[in-house]
């Protein structure tokens, strides 16, 4: 992690054309205490739950140390997902995210997510939550149109587990406060 991460802007990450090497900001950048408590993917039509992960309320807080072992840091900041191949053929998907924030006002909270397969950008999402009330618990449920993938691309993604990846960047008032990664495998 080089110096100057404080200067990274939303435009900088929107210009990225491949996964980053490592993380663009330290864990301690999250001074607002933003914490994800529930993430769910639903069938857009039936609202049936397809996947859900909830934070264990008894889990120890994530250490905010900046000098931790890179391998440990990677495991803390990377989520691995295993989805049915069917997911890749959905035209729309509904996702629901619940997060809480700490005791300070959070101005202009924004998420940018870049998805790649083997270093090629396949999807990019950009959503502004805006203001978050101190100590609030907030939810966001959106319907995404999913760009259609070619069948050979679907097969390639299924054949190469965890080579489909994403970088999630979170900004408060255009300052980077969080960067997490995800890696995906697809199987029948």
């Amino acid at each position: 992690m080089g110096s100057g991460w404080e200067d990274i802007t939303p435009d900088d990450v929107l210009a990225l054309d491949g996964p980053t090497k490592g993380f663009l900001c330290p864990l301690s950048a999250n001074t607002y205490g933003i914490d994800f408590v529930d993430f769910e993917i639903k069938d857009a039509d039936s609202a049936r739950s397809l996947f859900r992960v909830q934070k264990d309320p008894d889990a120890a807080p994530v250490p905010m140390l900046d000098n931790i072992d890179p391998a440990i840091e990677e495991s803390i900041r990377t989520i691995k997902y295993c989805f049915p191949v069917e997911f890749l053929r959905y035209k729309t998907v509904r996702t629901s995210l619940v997060f809480q924030v700490g005791p300070n006002e959070v101005p202009n909270f924004r998420m940018i997510e870049r998805h790649y397969h083997k270093d090629e950008l396949i999807r990019s999402y950009d959503f502004t939550f805006g203001f978050c009330i101190p100590n609030s618990v907030n939810s966001w449920e959106a319907i995404y149109p999913v760009p259609e993938l070619k069948e050979d691309q679907v097969q390639d993604m299924a054949a190469h587990p965890y080579e489909t990846t994403s970088d999630s960047f979170y900004f408060v008032d255009n300052k980077l406060v969080m960067h997490n990664k995800a890696a995906y495998m697809y199987q029948d």
Partner: peptide, 27 residues
């Protein structure tokens, strides 16, 4: 609701982005 719930819905060809914000006095 202790903050906001944002929900996107399809309605008559429109995408509604509904911002449901908590109504307690402190909010």
């Amino acid at each position: 609701t202790l903050g906001f719930n944002i929900k996107s819905m399809s309605f008559k060809g429109f995408t509604l982005n509904v911002w449901d914000v908590g109504g307690q006095k402190t909010l």
